[in-house]
Structure formats: C-alpha cells, structure tokens
C-alpha cells in the first residue's frame, strides 16, 4: 500500500453544549475515537447522515479545529505543531455552497490569488499569469477575472472555489459535499472536472457526501460514519457490492437509482435519529437496527478487521481474531 498522507489517530472532539439557564453544560461527542488513514492518490469518501460528525472531522483534518484528544498527522507530523501556512499548502477544502464560499465583496481575481498573497509569494508579477493558468484548468473564461461572484452562475462559482483551492497546488483536497448544492447538469460537469484534476495533478481527495451515487462514482475507499464513529471502512468496490454493517446496508438501499421498475425502497430503519446529546448505550445504532440483538444495547461493538477494511458490529463478533481470513 502506498504511503499515508493524512491520518487521524483515535481522534475525539467534544463540544460543551449549554443545557439551558442554570443547568450544567453537557458534552456533545461530535467525533468519538476515530481512526482514519488517507493514502496518497486515493479518493476516500466519508459517508453519513447530517449530524454524524463528518464536517467536524473535516475541520480537524484541515487544522482548523484542535481535537479534544487523539492526534492528527500530516505526512507523519502532528498538525497542531505545524505552521498554519504549511498545512494550507498541503491540504485545501472545497465547500458545498458556492454562494457562501466566495466573499461577495471581492473580485474573482482577488479571490483566486488570495492564496498566493497569504503565502507571501515572492513574485506578484506572475500572479495574474498563474491565475489565468488555473482558471483555464478549471474551465473558467478569462474575462471573469474582474467580475464579482454575484455575476457568475452556481457552476462557475464552484469552479472559482476549486481554482482558489488548487492555485498553490496542494496534494490533498477535502471536498465537503462538492456538488449537492448544484443542479444535476452542473453537478456532472463539476464531478468530471474533479476527476480530471485528480489525474492531471495527482491529487488525493477526501470526499464528504451523503449522495452515495456520487460516492460510488468517485471513491476508491469508503468510510461510513454514524454518530461520531466510523462503523465500516472498506474498498469502494467491496463496500458497494457486499456492505457488512446494517447501517451501510440501509444507506445503500436508500439510494434511489433512476429505475422506474423499482419502487421506493423500504429500509426498515427506525425513524428516530438519536439525539447526539443523549447517545444510546452499547452500539449507537441499535435503536434503529433491524438485526439488533439483546447485547447490542449493553456492549459497544469492537472494531473487527475484514480484508482490507473493518466493521464495528456484533453480527461479526465470531470473526474477531480471525483477522484477514474472512471477507
């Protein structure tokens, strides 16, 4: 396997939520003991419902939020001790909403060249040339250089956001729902662009999404997150063909492929998404799980390795210790 570029080791992030007037604050474990490795050149997808902690994890990987415990490492060095500008040179984000990710008071040119300015680039004379290069690469016409975000369409804005993220040639790009705010026809253009850029620039992607069709299309590896834990991590092919965790199965069943011969799937999932402030005991998923067993509500499942990945579920307890045999 190729080298790990970005790694989370047993990372936890807890927020203190005020319980109301004169009530003690309560802890919200947004991310709870996560191990994650992103290897050079792969597309790791982080999948899960809203509130599962995906975005908190992404912020920590960008070095914007310190973990409560555990460590985050970029190229083997802890992110907290690294210079902010060094991290920024290596990891860059692309956000979901191209309408809020661009400062409306700045011209496209100054948005795209901001990274050069911030890095203290020695040669301001070349900024315009480099901006032109990156704009061509992401498919933006040169004439928008002096325009403002309000004058561009949603797809063009997302291209501006991509250009800004890539102008300093980072190696890792964290895409937080990169297409879900876009129209279908624009979405496909941005997905194609991301694929092309990856090949051309040798990028590593962490794609955060709830759209499994997009994930299946892009990802080489998938991590499924539920309430602050990664419940299953596999090669994309393995996960989409034979999902193991009941939650992964339910997620995959919920994908609505445009096939009129199939009806609306019945996921058999309990409706209630648990309150993250009041986490279920044992396995966090047991209140919604159709395969829940008595001990699921008392004992938290352990991480069981499976082939190249792992799963956290009592259904596979007998495989524990067998390691790579089962798959």
């Amino acid at each position: 396997m190729s080298d790990v570029v970005l790694e989370a080791r047993d990372v936890t992030r807890t927020f203190m939520i005020s319980g109301g007037f004169m009530k003690p604050k309560r802890p919200l474990h947004a991310v709870n003991g996560i191990d994650l490795r992103i290897r050079q050149g792969e597309v790791l997808a982080l999948v899960g419902e809203s509130g599962c902690g995906k975005t908190t994890l992404a912020k920590m990987l960008l070095g914007l939020l310190p973990p409560t415990s555990g460590s985050l490492q970029l190229d083997g060095k802890p992110i907290e001790t690294m210079d902010r500008l060094r991290v920024a040179q290596t990891v860059q984000p692309i956000f979901q909403d191209p309408y809020s990710s661009l400062n409306p008071r700045k011209s496209i040119g100054s948005i795209i060249t901001l990274p050069l300015k911030v890095q203290g680039d020695k040669d301001p004379g070349t900024w315009r040339k480099r901006a032109d290069e990156i704009m061509e690469l992401v498919g933006l016409p040169r004439r928008v250089y002096n325009n403002y975000p309000s004058q561009l369409s949603g797809g063009q804005r997302q291209r501006v956001a991509i250009a800004r993220a890539l102008i300093n040639r980072p190696r890792i790009v964290i895409c937080d729902e990169p297409t879900s705010a876009l129209d279908v026809s624009v979405q496909s253009q941005i997905l194609n662009l991301l694929q092309d850029l990856r090949e051309e620039l040798g990028l590593t992607y962490l794609v955060i999404s709830h759209n499994l069709a997009v994930v299946e299309h892009m990802a080489t590896r998938v991590a499924v997150m539920y309430l602050g834990r990664i419940v299953e991590e596999e090669d994309a092919g393995t996960l989409f063909d034979t999902p193991k965790h009941p939650y992964s199965k339910a997620l995959l069943e919920s994908v609505l492929t445009p096939d009129p011969s199939l009806g609306v799937p019945d996921t058999h999932l309990g409706a209630a998404y648990p309150n993250p402030l009041d986490m279920p005991s044992g396995c966090r998923f047991h209140p919604r799980c159709i395969k829940a067993m008595p001990h699921c509500s008392t004992t938290a499942p352990r991480k069981i390795p499976f082939g190249d990945g792992h799963v956290e579920c009592h259904l596979y307890d007998e495989n524990e210790g067998k390691g790579k045999l089962a798959s």
């Binding site: 990891v91 860059q92 984000p93 990274p115 890095q119």
Partner: peptide, 8 residues
C-alpha cells in the same frame, strides 16, 4: 472558513 484554511 476558506480563508482560515488558506492560512490567513
């Protein structure tokens, strides 16, 4: 957030 991530 993006400006923070750029190291501003």
């Amino acid at each position: 957030t993006s400006a923070q991530a750029l190291g501003c």
